[in-house]
Each structure stands twice: as C-alpha cells, then as structure tokens.
Amino acid sequence: MIVCVAVVGHQNNPLYIQSFTEADDALKLHHIVHCSLDVVDERVNNPKKSGPLLNETFLGLLYPTENYKVYGYLTNTKVKFILVTTDLDVKDADVRNFFRRFHAAYVDAVSNPFHVPGKKITSRTFAERVSTIVKAFGLSSAG
C-alpha cells in the first residue's frame, strides 16, 4: 500500500505532498521524503557506470527503512517524484507504471494556465487523479 507521494521542485522545494494513511504520521512521512532527496542528489551526481542511462527518469529504490520502501523518479526538468510504500515485495514494473501515470497527471496539472510554475500544486483534479492512481497501484500489485 502506498502511504505517501510527493512532488519536489528542482530547488528541493515541496510542490505537492500527500499521505494516504489513517494514522497521524504525516510528519514522519514528510521526514522520510525529505531524507530521500539527498539520496536522489547522490544518485544524480554520482551515476554508477553500469547504472541507468542518462535519460532514464526512473531512479529505482532509493532506500528501504524498517517499515517503508522509498522510490524516486526524476523528470528531465529536475522535478522529483517520491513514492513511499509499505509493501515489501514490490514489482519494479508496477512502480514504473505508477510513475508513468503520475508523471502524466503532473504534466496536465502544470499545463493549467492558472498554475504558477514553482508554486505548490493546489489543483483538486490533480489530487483526485493521484488518489485514483494510488488506489490502482494497490490493485495491480495484488493481482
């Protein structure tokens, strides 16, 4: 189950963060997302030789904690998408698929002329779409 998704701008400014848990652990999740940004930076600045291609946007598993797995995705405009999940055996393909759809939703949201680039994403449609995608993630991994 996905517990948190976040969009972080290229100056590490948060653009959108949404948790999907019942418990009041938003602060903890925010902390996890925050920590993951350093990992993203490290991945980007020190690409492994055998690592992903330059234009690969999917960063893979950033780091696991005792309860969560954190995945990252970096667009070519240096916007980071972070996914925090509690699932233990997550298929890479599922995560990729999730990020692909999430990216599409993000692109549509920033295409709204009333959205100011670099400002937080307040769109309600975006929030709805994200929660649909998040729900679909649970289903596809269950099946």
């Binding site: 949201a109 295409s111 709204n112 002329p113 009333f114 307040t122 769109s123 309600r124 449609t125």
Partner: peptide, 8 residues
C-alpha cells in the same frame, strides 16, 4: 479549456 482549472 483542456487542462484548465479556474483559480480557487
């Protein structure tokens, strides 16, 4: 009006 959401 594609993509558009009026300001809130």
């Amino acid at each position: 009006a594609d993509f558009v959401e009026l300001p809130d």
